[in-house]
């Protein structure tokens, strides 16, 4: 079953044609990696899935982006409701200036949940699923800024997971982390994929190869190739893909 589908998507920043005729289907509970050189449109495409580009002046989309079969750009779609189901983690960890506990509880409170026991339970579950619970369970009231970079990024993942999104978007989630923290994030991606569909933008070829089931290669606003990750990294169909993943251009 497909979770996300893009049909004939074109996207413009003013007169700049950033995405050209993209068609893709992303299956439920799979990890899909977007790779490609800087400026190729992969992050722009990722941000279409939770309408993060809406507020950019001059931004314009044609085509359809469907999640669970519903066009998320249709009139009447509540963007807040959409974003409850589509979480996002960014390149740099961006915890709120609050305690560890309140960071994770934030989304629940914004959604109107007041039951303290429920919130406490969900915070623990989210921190556990983000492989952070054992490290922070004794300092939940401390500032999130006291955590290391890797821990902060896992906190952000826990914050996103607390509202149980069915899609998690990750824009270079480990690019600012050391190898050990990166390994933890990658393990986390594999574990979370049983609960949620994950789309990850990464500049690390090895990371895409390790964590994803499918990989899409973008170049100059076009999706050049999309397929099983094993195939893309052993015998890609397109010469441009091979040249990119072997480091010969881009």
């Amino acid at each position: 079953m497909n979770k996300i589908e893009a049909k004939n998507v074109d996207f413009y920043y003013g007169t700049f044609h950033a995405l050209k005729g993209i068609n893709i289907t992303i299956p439920n509970n799979e990890v899909v990696a977007f790779i490609g050189p800087s400026g190729c449109g992969k992050s722009t495409f990722l941000r279409l899935f939770n309408r993060m580009n809406d507020l950019i002046p001059g931004a314009r989309l044609t085509g359809q982006v469907l999640i669970d079969g519903q066009d998320i750009y249709e009139k009447g779609v509540d963007v807040d409701v959409l974003r409850r189901g589509v979480g996002m983690v960014f390149q740099r960890p961006n915890p709120f200036p609050k305690s560890i506990f309140e960071n994770v509880a934030y989304g629940l409170r914004v959604n109107g949940i007041k039951d303290k026991d429920f919130i406490r339970q969900r915070v623990e579950e989210a921190l556990t699923s983000a492989a952070l619970w054992n490290e922070v369970k004794d300092k939940l009231k401390e500032s999130a800024y006291a955590l290391s970079g890797g821990q902060q990024q896992r906190l952000c993942i826990a914050r996103a997971m607390a509202v149980q999104p069915s899609v998690l978007l990750m824009d270079e989630p480990a690019s600012a982390l050391d190898p050990i923290s990166t390994a933890k994030i990658e393990e986390l991606i594999c574990e979370l994929s049983s609960q949620t569909t994950i789309v990850i933008v990464t500049h690390s070829m090895q990371q895409a190869a390790r964590v994803s089931n499918k990989t899409a290669f973008f170049y100059l606003g076009e999706m050049v190739e999309y397929g099983e990750t094993k195939k893309i990294f052993t015998n890609p169909e397109k010469e441009a893909t091979q040249n990119y993943i072997t480091g010969r251009f881009g």
Partner: peptide, 9 residues
């Protein structure tokens, strides 16, 4: 060098 695709083959 972690080769992939044609380099790995």
């Amino acid at each position: 060098y972690n080769p992939v695709a044609v380099d790995l083959r």
